[in-house]
C-alpha cells in the first residue's frame, strides 16, 4: 500500500517538476553576454514561462541552477553555498562556453575553470553566448530526460571540486 502511495507521489513530483521547474540563475564570473541571453529567454519573443519555468531568487525554492561564466575565486564559495542550499533533487545547467570549460578566461589567475570543477553539472549548453533558443532547448531536454527511465547523470570535472 505505502509502496503505491510512494510511487504515486514520486510520479506526481516528477510531473510537477517537469511541468513547472523553478530556476535560479547565478553568474560566477561571466561577461554578462550569457546573462542577458538568459534574461531574453524570459521576455515576450522567447517566453520561457510557457514551459512553466519560473526564474526566482531563492536557492531554497529552486529545482534548477542555471550557471553562467567561469568560476572566479570569489564566486566559488557562493556557488557551492547556493548549490548546497537547494533542495534535492537538484539539477545544474552550465550555460555558455565559459561555464562549460572556462572559455576564453581559462588560465586567468582568478579563474578556476568551468562550473563542473566546483559542482556537478547535468547539462552543458555551449555557445558564446548560446542563443536563447539553445538555452531553452537545453533546459527542456534536461527536464524531459527526467521522465525517462534513465535521466541524465551529473558530471563532475576532473578535480572533483578540489580545484
Amino acid at each position: 500500500m505505502s509502496n503505491l502511495v510512494d510511487q504515486i507521489t514520486a510520479g506526481l513530483k516528477t510531473w510537477a517538476r517537469v511541468n513547472s521547474p523553478w530556476v535560479i540563475h547565478f553568474n560566477s564570473g561571466s561577461c554578462n553576454g550569457c546573462d542577458i541571453e538568459i534574461l531574453a529567454t524570459l521576455t515576450p519573443r522567447y517566453d520561457l514561462e510557457r514551459f512553466g519555468v519560473k526564474l526566482q531568487g531563492s536557492p531554497r525554492h529552486a529545482d534548477v541552477l542555471v550557471c553562467t561564466g567561469p568560476v572566479t575565486r570569489q564566486a566559488r564559495e557562493r556557488l557551492i553555498r547556493i548549490y548546497e542550499q537547494m533542495p534535492e533533487p537538484k539539477f545544474v545547467v552550465a550555460v555558455g562556453s565559459c561555464a562549460v570549460s572556462g572559455g576564453v578566461f581559462e588560465g586567468c589567475y582568478n579563474v578556476m575553470g568551468g562550473i563542473d570543477r566546483v559542482i556537478p553539472v547535468h547539462a552543458f549548453i555551449p555557445g558564446c553566448p548560446p542563443r536563447p533558443e539553445a538555452i531553452i532547448d537545453g533546459v527542456v531536454k534536461l527536464l524531459s530526460s527526467l521522465q525517462s527511465p534513465a535521466p541524465v547523470q551529473p558530471i563532475m570535472g576532473p578535480d572533483g571540486g578540489k580545484a
Binding site: 561571466s30 570569489q74 579563474v111
Partner: peptide, 22 residues
C-alpha cells in the same frame, strides 16, 4: 571582484589578435 577574472594579466600572455577576442 566577484567577476574579477584577471583579464589584464591574461593579455600579457596572449598575442594581439587573441587579445581582441579576450
Amino acid at each position: 571582484g566577484y567577476v574579477h577574472r584577471g583579464i589584464e594579466k591574461a593579455t600579457e600572455s596572449r598575442n594581439y589578435i587573441q587579445n581582441l577576442y579576450l
